[in-house]
Design a protein around this nucleic acid. Structure first.
Lengths: 232, 232
DNA sequence: ACCTGAACACCGTTCAAGT
DNA sequence: ACCTGAACACCGTTCAAGT
């Protein structure tokens, strides 16, 4: 196990900028997000980002302690895009659903963020805002004490666990490799009739639609299960 | 988006070895798993692994096309450790629970595997075996057609989504940084009373126990939800 | 059939030096 | 206060050459 000491950008005071700073953290983070959206996590290097900003390779280290801090900043930016519903206006089930779909769509819009889930501390203001909202929704639903946290953990686990492989599926191949990939799975599954059956069943529908159906199936099941807990 | 063409070790014929090969794929994969267990994903480099095997830095490329293929092999090895219950003997709810806990424990035993989930194709025989078992269990429970896949997706999503952050929590810090880390969260959450409350509620119990309770809470809820679907 | 070392094109990060 | 370039210690991978 590696076990490095814990650290995060959000625990350090940012540098105080002078009157007219050439660059700013915001500018750097925005450029990083843009580069990540365009070229993925692998496409981001400190040198490349520096070059894009017309700066020397290592200038960024003035604004940011290291690459991980930059990624923390970019990651929190993504969480800022998640639409958080107001639980007082729509019943808790609808609020949870909206939030789950919102999280999913945001991650799909920034596929590189899926690679960061759980690998980087999520202590930024936007992450906190989403976490806060999740708690409020479940409290408003009537959950208490530890159960409020457990509900939140369960929901985010489901959304993350469902979305991460979705991203992998989408990005590991182009558009028309689909049939080629299905053949691959068929071959890998040749020893297991059940699995083969699965491939063929799924091959019928449009992949995007099937994924959405799958997401909805699990989400509804989860909500049903939570509702049962709440009632008891 | 990066979108490289899809490829996997499991789709290529391995090299045929002569009578007395100096090294073998099995030996290399075993050494890789050992190194990964000891030093984590970051700790594995082709050079370091080569050195451990008493080989030149680049000898491994004879047995494996690239590092990703090596990781695919190591990853599937991990899936081989998952205990898969027989659904004919224990009822579907118990079978699903056992499998979920089995997956969780296996991942916790090899924390680096969590970083690979969804980032690498899982087409190896051991992954397939687990996938097959999951399908069989849900079929035996009475699910049909697409629902069988949806149940499986939901279950694995939950286990992955719950376990990935668990790993992060465990590996991002040592044993006694816990209180320091809690302070960090408290500070980050200072704008959100709900979140603060959460930190304090959770601070009471032993972290490992609380995590297990959380896992169980979500799992039971999920099973309840699926049961409801099955009945209707 | 298997292994080697040198070489290529990269990385993140540090740091003394500049303005 | 901010930026630079050179340098360090790494990477994964290719490939001609060896046995």
């Amino acid at each position: 196990m590696s076990s490095k000491p814990f650290s995060s950008v959000w625990l350090r005071e940012p540098r105080k900028s002078a009157a007219a700073p050439g660059r700013s953290r915001e500018e750097i983070v925005a450029a990083a997000v843009k580069l990540l959206d365009e070229e993925g996590l692998q496409g981001l290097s400190m040198r490349k980002l520096g070059a894009r900003l017309g700066a020397g390779a290592t200038s960024l280290y003035w604004y940011v302690a290291n690459k991980d801090e930059l990624l923390e900043l970019a990651y929190d930016q993504v969480w800022g895009e998640v639409v958080v519903p107001d639980p007082d206006e729509v019943g808790w089930r609808d609020a949870v659903s909206a939030l789950a779909y919102g999280m999913r769509e945001t991650i799909l819009r920034h596929p590189w963020s899926a690679d960061l889930i759980g690998r980087l501390p999520a202590l930024g203001p936007n992450s906190m805002r989403v976490g806060d909202r999740i708690r409020r929704i479940f409290k408003a639903a009537g959950f208490q004490g530890l159960d409020v946290d457990f509900c939140g953990n369960t929901l985010t686990a489901y959304v993350f666990g469902m979305t991460i492989p979705e991203i992998a599926w989408l990005s590991s191949m182009g558009e028309e490799d689909i049939e080629q990939m299905r053949d691959a799975v068929r071959m890998a599954a040749s020893a297991h009739p059940e699995m083969l059956e699965s491939v063929d069943t799924l091959a019928g529908g449009d992949p995007g639609t099937v994924r959405r159906m799958s997401f909805d199936f699990g989400l509804v099941s989860l909500l049903d299960g939570l509702e049962r807990r709440r009632a008891s």
